[in-house]
Design a protein around this nucleic acid. Sequence first.
DNA 1: CCCCAGGCAGTTA
DNA 2: TAACTGCCTGGG
Length: 299
Amino acid sequence: MIMGAMGVLRIVDENNKIIIKGLRDFEPEHIFECGQCFRWNREDDGSYTGVAYDRILNVNKDGDTVILDNTNTEDFNNIWAKYFDLDNDYSKIKRDLISRDEIIRNAINFGHGIRILQQEPWEILISFIISANNAIPRIKKSVELLSKDFGQYLGRYKGKDHYSFPDVEIISELNDEQLEPYGVGYRSKYILKAAKKVVDENISFERLKELSGEDCYNAMLEFSGVGPKVASCILVFAMGKVEACPIDVWIKRVMEHFYFHKDTSNKKIEQFARQKFGQYAGYAQQYLFYYAREHKIGK
DNA sequence: CCCCAGGCAGTTA
DNA sequence: TAACTGCCTGGG
């Protein structure tokens, strides 16, 4: 059992599975399809399989029971509880946001099971550098291929081999031509520069997490290929800075559609969003993104 | 063939 | 500090 802000969860460890009862605000589809991650894929049975922290995990939900397959109590306590942000009370966050207006209320009702994953900073840095001016299926393909060729083999699950995301040292020793087969295009030089910067400057992402949101944001902007949107994504998805608010095309569309009714600069949109949603801007962004994209709002 | 996709860097004014 | 432009790649 773990005590979280949401109360007591009943957790059973059996047969290489962790079974969680009483967990609210958790829908695998919402979590893995809301644009925050690139390494989780839907299986035929509706569950999701992914790789994080050098482990293969499968996540399913049956009624009000969440099943984590291919894991154990030790990894659940050390990794997955934090990865899935289980100690955070999303009902409280949602209540706060819903009270602000009907637009965010509709978005939350639609994506009510979203959770912001606490992902690995190095992987998220590179993944979101690749994401710039790119399409999600191709981002996922590039990340998978890089992991297959330069990551560590983790094992086989449901008939598929899985690999960890490549270590920074491995990427830092590659050159432009070696990245050509991975379909990252002109972003290859950003990837290589980022890897070399992390190695050369001995950058510790754990130390960067201790910085203020603003300092952490500025540190991310130091990477070539990282602008305001990508930096904000890294802050929310890997650095625990959930007050950041990435403004991508979908957020721009949904905000212009519902709030501005005219073309508006990203800077103004971010100012508006951060003022409106405050400390919960990062969560609001995820609900709005998922809502806008699934409904193709503004297209 | 053109268009665009979860932006960014580099260049102008 | 805003506005503008080109950009790898691949699917529609």
